[in-house]
Design a protein around this nucleic acid. Structure first.
Length: 878
RNA sequence: GGGCGAUUAGCUCAGCUGGGAGAGCGCCGUCUCGACAAGGCGGAGGUCACUGGUUCGAGCCCAGUAUCGCCCACCA
C-alpha cells in the first residue's frame, strides 16, 4: 500500500522483470500432460532460428499467441505453448562459415565432422538469446520443455518420416532440373526463389545455319552461353514460315553439332522469330520440351558456376558471364549475330543468397506432393482447418491445387543427413546404416522445412504415443506471417494428416506484417528495423526513422498492446503512437487502481452492489467489455480487443465513472453508500484487470497483487476470467447515463464558448426531462448550480438532450458572448431541424425506408424541436 | 501475364446487414478541480482517390479509371 501512495506512475522497468520471475517460478508455463487434446489448449510457437534475435514479427506473434494462451489458461484449460528452435540449415551454416573465414580457415578445410561440431558449439554460444527475449516479452511459453529440430529424438522423427515416404514411393531420387543457387552451391526449392522484375538484359538474335546448306534459322536468347548445350531448335507446328523444317536439322554454330528441328506447341509464333533454341540442360521449359521429345541433356555450366568440360576446350573453366562475352565475340566474328536489343524481363534469384538462379540438371531427392496435397485441401475446404483471414485461405487452396514436386535435398552439412546409403549399385534407405562394409551415406541434408513440417507433433514426442501427444495434439491455433503459409503451414497440414491421421491445428491465423513507418520493409540493412527490445527497455530508433533518438523504454505491456492495436488482416505501418497508447493505458489503469485502493476500506470485498444509476451503468458497460474482449481475442480480432479495452478504461471507467463517484467517497459521505460503492468499485476493477490481463499482463498482475488478491487467491495469470453476468445488463441505465454525459458535454462546451472561468459555478435551471437521477451529476461535472426555481434573470439557454438549461444572470457569464452563442445554437438546431423535416417530407423516404429508421428520424425531429423551443423561450420558471 | 488488397482528419488507422463521418497521436485554447501533466476539459481539422450507375438515401453495393502494395506465373 505504501508503494501505491508514493508511486504515481506505473514503472515497467521496475515491475516487469519481477513479475516475469514470479510467472516462471510458479510453474504456470509448464502443464503436466493429462487429459485429451480436445479439453486442453495448445499452440506451437513457430520455431525461431536457434541463433536468431527477436524481431518485430516475433514480438507481434508473441503478443498474439500469448493473448490466446493466457485467455485460455484463464478459462481453466490445461494450456501448453510449445517452445523450440529451428536449426535453420542454411542460415546457421553460413554464420559458422563466416566465422571460419574470419579465422582464416573454411568448412572444406576442417571437414564435415569438425564443421558440424563447430555448429553445435556456435549454437551453445549464441543460441537461446531469443528465448530470453520471449521471456522479456512476457510470453508464457513452456520454457521447461524446450525442443530443437536437431535433438536426437526429433532427428529420429525426421528419419522415420523420410524412410516411410521413401518406402511409399513418395520420396525419390532423380536427375531433374533444379533451382541451383550458385552462392550456396546447393539446390533450393521453388519457394525459395523470387522473381525479380525489371532486370535489363541483352536479347541476342543468333543465326543457326540449316544443315541442308540452304538458309538459316534465327533464334533469340539472353543467355548465349547456354547455346553450347543446345540439342534442338523448335518451331510451332502451325507456323507457316517454317512449314518444311521440322524433321530437318540445323548446325549449332561454334560447336558444329547437328540439331534436330522439332515442332512443339510451346513455341510462340509471335515472339522473336518464332524459332526457339532448345537447351534442356539449362532452361526449365526446354527441359520439359526435351524430355517430351527425348532430347539429349547436356550440361555446360557446372555446379560451381564455371563452364564444364562439355563446353569445349575454348570455354571450359570460364565463368558463365565470361563465356557469354567470348561466345558473342566469336559469333560476331563469324557474322552470325543478327541483332541485339535491350530486353527487360523477370529473372529468378535466390532468396537465400541473393544470387541469380542457375537452372541446371542435378541428381536430387524429391517429394511427390499431389497425393499428400489432396487431403490437405480437403480439410481446409471442409472447414476442419480454418484459415483466417479468408484471403489467405484462398491462397492456400490455390497453391495446393497446383503443387509440384518438392526438391528436399540440400548440399549442406548442417541439418538432417539423408538416411540413404550406397554401395556400388546398391541403395539402402533405413533408420540405421546397413550392416556390412563399404556403405557410404548420402552426403546431402534435408531442406530445413522438411523437419519443420513435423513441428506440431514431433515436438510432442511422435512417433512414440507419449502423454504429451495425447494431451496436446492436435494443437488449437497456429499463428504466423503469410510468407511461410506454403513453406511451412501447408506442409504441416500434409505431414500431420499423413503421419498422425489428424489435423495439426484447428485454426490458422495469418497475422499482419509490420512495415516501417514509411511503408518499406523492416530490415536491418535498410535501417528500418525496429528492435522490440529497444522499444521495451529503451534503445535507439532505427536510422531510417524520421524521429531520431532513443525509445524511452515503453515496457512490454505497452509494446504488446501497441502491436496488437496495429495488427489487422493486412500489412500495416509501424506506429509508435499505438505503443504510447498502450503505455498510457497501463498507467491509467495503475492510477485508477491507486485511486480506488487508497479510498476504499481494507475490509471491502469486490461485489456488484449498485445503488445509483451510474453504478448500474458501469456494471452494465462492464458486462459488454468483458464479453467483447474475450470474443475478440477468440475471433483473432486483436486490434479491436485492445482498443475496445482502452475505450472502456478511459472513456467509461476513468473519465466518467470515477469522476461521478468521487463525491460519494469523501469523508462526509454516507458510510453505507460508501461501503457499497467500495465493493462495486473493486468488483469493476477486478473484472477489468482480469479481462485486460491477456493483453497487458504485467501491469494487471502487479495491480492484482497490490489489491491483495495474489495473497488470497494466487497469481492473476492462474486466476479465472470474469464470466459476464447478463443480469447486470441495464439498457435503461445506459440510456440515462448517455443522456447525462451528452448534457454535461454540451454545458462544458457552452462554458468554454462564453469564457466562463473554470472554477466558477454557473447558476441555472434545468428545463429538460429524463434527468431524474442524473441532475446532480450534470450539475457537478458541468459545474452548474442547478435549482428547480431560478432566483435570477434568465439570460441564456443551453440546449441539452430533451430540453435545455436556462442560465441565470451572474458575474460568471459574459452576456454578449452568451447571446452570440445562443444565436449560434439556434442556427445549428434550425439547420438540423430543416434537414430532418426535409427528409421526413420526402415521400420516397417515408414510404420505402424501414419503419424503425423513419421512427428514429421522427423522434429525433421531436427532440430537436423541444430543444429549440427551450432555447427560444428562456424563462425564469421551471 | 494472372489474382488479391488498399486509397477516410496533418500522421497511423476504425467504420457492423446501406439510414446524420470516428479513435489515438499531432495541433490550438484552457485548468496548480486531492488517482494519473504519460493528466483533465474544450476546440479546429474530412468533396471518404476519381468518374458513372443502382437506391427514397452510398464511405459502404455495381461498373470503369488512377495510384500504391502484396501474391502467383516456364514467352526464349
Amino acid at each position: 500500500m505504501r508503494e501505491l501512495q508514493d508511486r504515481t506512475r506505473f514503472e515497467p522497468a521496475e515491475v516487469e522483470p519481477r513479475i516475469i520471475r514470479r510467472w516462471l517460478d510458479c510453474g504456470l508455463v509448464h502443464p503436466e500432460p493429462a487429459g485429451l487434446a480436445e479439453q486442453n489448449y495448445s499452440i506451437a510457437l513457430p520455431p525461431p532460428n536457434v541463433t536468431g534475435v527477436l524481431h518485430m514479427g516475433h514480438a507481434l506473434n508473441g503478443a498474439i499467441q500469448d493473448a490466446l494462451v493466457r485467455s485460455n489458461r484463464m478459462r481453466g484449460k490445461r494450456t501448453k505453448w510449445i517452445l523450440g528452435t529451428d536449426h535453420a540449415g542454411i542460415g546457421t551454416q553460413r554464420q559458422v562459415e563466416k566465422r571460419l573465414e574470419s579465422e582464416g580457415t573454411s568448412r572444406l578445410e576442417i571437414g564435415r565432422d569438425a564443421f558440424v561440431q563447430r555448429v553445435w558449439e556456435w549454437r551453445e554460444e549464441h543460441g537461446g538469446q531469443i528465448i530470453e527475449q520471449f521471456k522479456r516479452l512476457g510470453a508464457t511459453l513452456d520454457y521447461e520443455d524446450e525442443r530443437f529440430t536437431m535433438d536426437e529424438r526429433y532427428q529420429e522423427a525426421v528419419m522415420r518420416v523420410f524412410v516411410d515416404l521413401y518406402n511409399d514411393d513418395l520420396i525419390y531420387r532423380d536427375h531433374y532440373m533444379v533451382n541451383w543457387d550458385p552462392g550456396l552451391r546447393s539446390a533450393i526449392s521453388d519457394l525459395e526463389v523470387e522473381e525479380r522484375e525489371g532486370v535489363v538484359d541483352t536479347l541476342y538474335s543468333i543465326a543457326y545455319p540449316l544443315a541442308s546448306g540452304e538458309g538459316e534459322l534465327v533464334v533469340a536468347t539472353v543467355r548465349p552461353e547456354t547455346m553450347l548445350a543446345d540439342t534442338a531448335v523448335a518451331v510451332h507446328p502451325d507456323d507457316e514460315r517454317y512449314g518444311g523444317l521440322p524433321g530437318q536439322e540445323a548446325i549449332l554454330p561454334l560447336v558444329g553439332r547437328r540439331l534436330p528441328i522439332i515442332a512443339d506447341e510451346y513455341v510462340k509464333t509471335d515472339f522473336g522469330t518464332g524459332a526457339l533454341k532448345i537447351t534442356p540442360g539449362h532452361d526449365p521449359n526446354d527441359f520439359e520440351i526435351g524430355r517430351h521429345h527425348g532430347l539429349d541433356e547436356i550440361g555446360v555450366i557446372g555446379e560451381d558456376g564455371l563452364m564444364t568440360e562439355a563446353a569445349g576446350e575454348r570455354y571450359r573453366g570460364l565463368t558463365a558471364l565470361e563465356a557469354r562475352e567470348r561466345i558473342v565475340a566469336d559469333l560476331e566474328e563469324q557474322g552470325l549475330i543478327r541483332g541485339r536489343e535491350e530486353y527487360v524481363h523477370a529473372v529468378p534469384y535466390s532468396q537465400r543468397s541473393g544470387e541469380r538462379i542457375e537452372p541446371l540438371i542435378s541428381l536430387q531427392w524429391f517429394m511427390r506432393m499431389d497425393e499428400l496435397a489432396r487431403p490437405a485441401i480437403e480439410v481446409v475446404r471442409s472447414g476442419e482447418v480454418r484459415i483466417h483471414p479468408e484471403s489467405q485461405r484462398k491462397r492456400y487452396l490455390d497453391w495446393l491445387a497446383e503443387i509440384r514436386p518438392w526438391c528436399i535435398s540440400r548440399q549442406l552439412w548442417w541439418g538432417h543427413q539423408i538416411p540413404v546409403w550406397y554401395r556400388g549399385e546398391e541403395v539402402y534407405c533405413g533408420l540405421q546404416a546397413p550392416a556390412g562394409e563399404g556403405w557410404l551415406q548420402d552426403p546431402d541434408v534435408l531442406d530445413t522445412w522438411f523437419s519443420s513440417a513435423l513441428w506440431p507433433f514431433a515436438t510432442l514426442g511422435w512417433p512414440e504415443p507419449t502423454p504429451e501427444l495425447r494431451a496436446f495434439y492436435p494443437t488449437d491455433v497456429l499463428s504466423t506471417a503469410r510468407d511461410i503459409l506454403f513453406l511451412w503451414v501447408a506442409r504441416m497440414v500434409m505431414m500431420g494428416l499423413r503421419f498422425t491421421d489428424d489435423i495439426p491445428f484447428a485454426d490458422v491465423y495469418v497475422h499482419s506484417i509490420i512495415q516501417a513507418p514509411d511503408g518499406r520493409r523492416m530490415s536491418k540493412s535498410l535501417g528500418t528495423g525496429v528492435d522490440p527490445l529497444a522499444l521495451i527497455e529503451g534503445g535507439p530508433r532505427p536510422p531510417a526513422f524520421e524521429q531520431g533518438g532513443d525509445f524511452p523504454g515503453y515496457g512490454a505491456d505497452a509494446v504488446r498492446f501497441g502491436l496488437l492495436a496495429m495488427s489487422s488482416t493486412q500489412d500495416v505501418r509501424f506506429a509508435e503512437e499505438k505503443v504510447q497508447q498502450g503505455q498510457a493505458l497501463a498507467n491509467k489503469l495503475y492510477n485508477a487502481t491507486r485511486f480506488v485502493a487508497l479510498r476504499v476500506g481494507d475490509d471491502a470485498e469486490p461485489a456488484p452492489r449498485p445503488r445509483t444509476v451510474e453504478d448500474r451503468w458501469i456494471l452494465s458497460r462492464l458486462q459488454a467489455v468483458v464479453t467483447d474482449t474475450q470474443a475478440r481475442i477468440d475471433g483473432f480480432d486483436f486490434a479491436k480487443a485492445a482498443l475496445g479495452l482502452y475505450d472502456f478504461v478511459y472513456g467509461e471507467l476513468c473519465d466518467w465513472y470515477l469522476e461521478l463517484v468521487k463525491p460519494r467517497l469523501s469523508e462526509e459521505a454516507d458510510p453505507q453508500d460508501r461501503a457499497a460503492l467500495g465493493s462495486t468499485l473493486l468488483h469493476v476493477l477486478r473484472a477489468t484487470i482480469a479481462t485486460a490481463h491477456p493483453i497487458i499482463p504485467f501491469v494487471t498482475e502487479e495491480l492484482w497483487e497490490l489489491l491483495g488478491w495474489t495473497a488470497k487467491e494466487g497469481l492473476l495469470a492462474t486466476s479465472r476470467l470474469p464470466s459476464p453476468n447478463e443480469a447486470l445488463r441495464d439498457p435503461a441505465a445506459e440510456q440515462e447515463m448517455e443522456r447525462a454525459i451528452e448534457a454535461i458535454k454540451a454545458l462544458r462546451a457552452w462554458r468554454d464558448s462564453v469564457s466562463v472561468k473554470a472554477g466558477v459555478k454557473v447558476p441555472g435551471t434545468l428545463q429538460a426531462s429524463g434527468y431524474d437521477e442524473t441532475a446532480g451529476h450534470v450539475a457537478a461535472l458541468a459545474r452548474f448550480e442547478l435549482n428547480s426555481h431560478g432566483d435570477g434573470e434568465p439570460v441564456a439557454s443551453v440546449a441539452i438532450p430533451g430540453g435545455a438549461v436556462s442560465v441565470l444572470a451572474s458575474d460568471a457569464v459574459d452576456l454578449g458572448a452568451a447571446d452570440r452563442r445562443m444565436v449560434q445554437q439556434r442556427e445549428a438546431l434550425g439547420a438540423e431541424i430543416a434537414r430532418a423535416s426535409g427528409k421526413l417530407a420526402n415521400e420516397g423516404f417515408v414510404a420505402k425506408a424501414p419503419e424503425a429508421v423513419v421512427a428514429r428520424e421522427r423522434a429525433k425531429l421531436e427532440r430537436l424541436r423541444e430543444e429549440l423551443a427551450a432555447l427560444a423561450a428562456p424563462s425564469g420558471g421551471g
